[in-house]
Write a protein that binds this DNA or RNA. Structure first.
Lengths: 214, 214
DNA sequence: GGATAATTTGACCGATTGGTAAACATTACA
DNA sequence: TGTAATGTTTACCAATCGGTCAAATTATCC
């Protein structure tokens, strides 16, 4: 008698690992563009090159696919923030945090859009993770920044909004890629735009625009 | 014999104006959360308090509704950038541009999310507007900023990325509102967060973080 | 008030949706 | 090699999708 769902088996077989990998990869393609509601199992099945019932053999529902995808991606996504080091030099820490986030926007734009889609829809599937693990991690880093400000190493500023501004400026290049390309024009839309962005953002965060009063 | 579609009539009646207004308002509610693909005419009809065929009497297709909505919102959305003045003082111009964009994120979050959704999906319905009117407007303001930099009024920086960074940081408070609230916690999620954000962002853009080298 | 145009709705259509059942094919392992 | 477990697919389901149609209702104007 066959066990109805792979999920119920004790050990994962080789085929399970391979196929789940393929499915999640395809799901990332689809969910990151159309969001949860706008995506269909058929689309994912086509990208994955499998039949729809075959997907549903590995993930019982569309929601289970989305859930698994978010869970897997969330950890990786927070890696740069986790690497943010209290003992490091403020300038190089902030510079490299910006760099790392920008690299992720460049190398993992689908992951960025997956989260952006989820946020736009009010985070119906991840609000707990936001209020729990994410907030905890941010709170921890906020204390680091506050200490730097208190020690006079950086200007006094709201650390939460500092983090928000790094998130938003870097992820912008993944989430709004079409807009960025359209505005920059075809000439400046090569991969070099990430280097330009990195230079600009590091300057912005370190020195600001150094506006001279007239 | 009744004219089949309101769109074909010469003059718009009072009822047409009222109902189209109600429909677009409802469509904004729905599209801004779920995106085009994820939204259904039934959802919009329910929010609007009308029957589905009644919506389709005013807008022939779901796409026509979305199109009308985007067109109406796009003009308003670019207002702050249009107000960006070449003859003004750089510092006050940038400060007030940030303020205005932040006010729009606060007062028109649905409009912000509507565009964000569209961008995430690759701007299938507005790419022409991005490459045309938007790029033209940005190019014009970019020249202003370049002139300021050349005159030594502000630091030399890439004006395109400067604009991107103002867009992303301000719209973040509309598009990622759930995340912002979750991270700030219930205590700091009141309307005061926009004032905090404004203070922080003005400081960031004017002075940067003023990092002291250790 | 009556004719006419404008508006609204219930019933319905074919296509697509998420998901199931069961037959069929393949793999792993004795 | 046989056989039981695992994996895959075809056919299908009820619900929902975007959209149509004709009939019913309401507003407009003489």
């Amino acid at each position: 008698m066959a066990i109805p769902r792979a999920a119920k088996t004790q050990r994962r077989t080789r085929i399970q690992e391979e196929k789940e990998e393929i499915i999640l990869e395809a799901a990332l393609d689809v969910f990151s563009v159309s969001g949860f509601r706008g995506s269909t199992i058929d689309q994912i099945a086509e990208v994955a090159g499998m039949s729809k019932p075959n997907l549903l053999y590995y993930f019982r529902t569309k929601e289970a696919m989305h859930r698994a995808l978010i869970d897997r991606v969330l950890f990786t996504w927070l890696e740069p923030l986790r690497a943010f080091d209290a003992n490091g030099d403020p300038e190089s820490e902030i510079r490299s945090y910006i760099r790392r986030k920008l690299e992720m926007a460049r190398d993992f734009p689908r992951e960025s859009r997956l989260f952006a889609n989820e946020m736009l829809q009010g985070a119906p599937h991840v609000e707990d993770e936001l209020r729990g693990p994410l907030k905890d991690l941010v709170d921890e880093k906020v204390e680091v920044i506050r200490a730097w400000a208190k020690a006079g190493k950086i200007a006094k500023c709201d650390p939460y909004h500092l983090i928000f501004s790094i998130w938003s400026t870097t992820q912008h290049y993944a989430d709004f890629d079409v807009q960025v390309r359209a505005v920059l024009g075809d000439e400046h839309s090569g991969e070099g735009r990430f280097e330009d962005a990195a230079r600009y953002l590091e300057q912005l965060f370190v020195d600001g625009l150094r506006i001279r009063h007239s």
